[in-house]
Design a protein around this nucleic acid. Structure first.
Lengths: 342, 342
DNA sequence: ACGATGCGCGTCAACGATGTCATTAGTTGA
DNA sequence: TCAACTAATGACATCGTTGACGCGCATCGT
């Protein structure tokens, strides 16, 4: 409380001087090491309090060397997207039990940004990196990976790099959605997807295509719109689809934001098409929105465990965890073709 | 690419040796300093690439001294709550334009955890701290604050500490909600709130109480339930309220999770009460949920600006930014008392 | 032609902590 | 009683980088 605002932060040397011991002893006292007289320890603690002193974690990390950092990097598309923020939440809770903290950065799905952010994190010597990558290859990380920095790829797999991965069962989920709509009798299904380069998008599209083939629907891709990356774009895409002749009788919205946009576009529609969305959406249960659901927090937890394993010295080959997806029929996906009104 | 997995990470000295220059020159070459021959610079770069070398940010930060960290701490209740994740998103985008990165940690509204996490961040010498505090006082941070570490309190004000703050206009928003429901004719209004110790809760309650007084509703607190901290608790609380005799004809749900819980409890209700919620909820527009809205991302941006100001050397007294709240009438809040069916 | 200028580079110390080893004093055991 | 041991402490080097400073050599102006 006698801290002088002008002077910089006090150093261990000042604490040592004030308590009349050597720096090393002060270090021992504050660092909780044994072999310090109780009396000495409390004198040092008092001096530290008086100066408003705190051990310098940066210096400690430098001294102790690599792999003593307690920071884990997380690169995701957009923190404000509930899918990512739940994933981040699950990851964080699992990591903090081990004293690890998360540096989170949003890439906005820009590969160049992603690379820069990853560089910054690696330069900072993070203990590991969890990444929902938007880049098309990851050979760039090979050197770091060989140096023993654990990488965990979430949501999207690494390309040209063998690293631990946690993925959704996108193919299965999308196939379920397609089969469901097909079974209800739909043949013209508007399909709205995110950036076409994303592997999640392609996997979902493959799964859906498989269901369409099985259902004997040939020209389903006539009603496909891609690269609807935000809610507004999705709303426009759905409006456009609904304006076509003949109009689709159902929609498959391939992620949470697209589902939101579609529901906006459908508001007040006299004869809304059936709708199945990928990803859970808040209030989806109340509104009766059928979705392909999964557990993003669990994804985060599983990623954390893979990472912690590596930190604990696990040396095996790259592992892959697949998070299951399941269809929740809540009404919107069960509307048959050709019905008027909700 | 010739990196040896056994050996530790290469150091600048090894790069220097390989390229036949001194460490200092290697540092200059890689650090982008002037006064290095183009030829030398590229030799050093090649050597660095060959070794898979990267400058050590930890060492650099130690050498360059305090206030060179590019890390900002963010302490919030729960990253998975969209209010917080949007705030974090706004904050991050504003900070990264200045090369700053975010360490985010969830406190789960536990003051003890909050303190521990804050200690860890301060020990790591973050450049500043943004905190949605759940603690009841903050004298603990006084020393750090005087040492020049900028603190920005978001959503909840500091107690016993003068620091920059960004708050919602909770009082106004809640008063609007109360006045609105009162004007529609409601006299028995179920009010469901979060942890009673939170200042946001108390401010909203005050604002609502003021509206009730103005509307001449005396015993409104009979229908008050507090400490509903998650969706499930809110759902139970609302069910309980609706089971009373006489039942409330309207609900004021004091945050986003409580609104979600209430909407679940109301699902399929033959004569749902009117409802106004605090905070925006996804699909609220589609579902016709009247809410007191505000902009969490803007909160994050404003917090970032206050922080950046301080980092840039601003020395004035603590400032307070108030983010406006406004009522969005979308249907649920306009249902009159005594109507059956939606 | 000679001092002034500046480029390119090197030497050395320092950032703030901690690991290693040495030292002193006090205890224990045979 | 004396060697062996332990507890408590200190001196010093070190982690990897960069700031301060210095030195040699080429260029330049007058």
């Amino acid at each position: 409380m006698t801290a002088d605002p002008k002077a910089g932060r006090p150093s261990l040397a000042q604490v040592a001087a004030l308590s009349g011991v050597s720096v090393k002893t002060a270090s021992r006292a504050l660092g909780g090491e044994p072999r310090v007289a109780a009396d000495t320890r409390s004198r040092v603690r008092d001096a530290a309090d008086q100066l408003g002193y705190r051990l310098n974690g940066v210096a400690r990390e430098l001294r102790r060397g690599a792999s003593t950092s307690t920071l884990v990097g997380l690169l995701i598309g957009d923190l404000a997207n509930p899918f990512y923020s739940r994933l981040a939440g699950g990851l964080e809770r699992e990591l903090r039990m081990r004293g690890l903290q998360l540096i989170t950065a949003s890439t906005d799905e820009d590969p160049e940004w992603e690379r820069r952010l990853a560089d910054a994190l690696l330069e900072r010597r993070v203990r590991g990196l969890v990444i929902a990558s938007t880049a098309t290859h990851h050979a760039h990380f090979a050197a770091e990976h060989r140096h023993g920095i654990p990488f965990v790829f979430v949501d999207r797999p690494p390309v040209e790099l063998a690293a631990d991965t946690v993925l959704l069962d996108n193919h299965h989920g999308a196939r379920l959605a397609g089969a469901h709509l097909g079974a209800v009798g739909h043949r013209r299904i508007g399909v709205v997807g995110d950036l076409s380069r994303l592997s999640t998008h392609r996997d979902r599209l493959d799964g859906f295509a498989e269901a369409m083939r099985a259902a004997g629907v040939a020209n389903w891709a006539d009603y496909l719109v891609e690269n609807a990356h935000d809610v507004a774009a999705a709303e426009r895409a759905v409006s456009e689809l609904l304006g076509r002749t003949p109009a689709p009788t159902a929609l498959f919205t391939m992620n949470n934001r697209i589902t939101l946009g579609a529901l906006r576009a459908l508001r007040g529609h006299p004869a809304p098409p059936a709708l199945v969305g990928f990803d859970e959406v808040d209030l989806g249960d109340v509104l009766g929105v059928s979705v392909v659901a999964h557990d993003p927090e669990d994804m985060g937890r599983r990623a954390a465990r893979l990472l912690l394993d590596r930190i604990d010295g696990h040396r095996g080959p790259a592992r892959q965890v697949v998070i299951p997806t399941r269809l929740l029929a809540r009404g919107s996906g069960e509307r048959p073709p050709g019905t008027a009104g909700a």
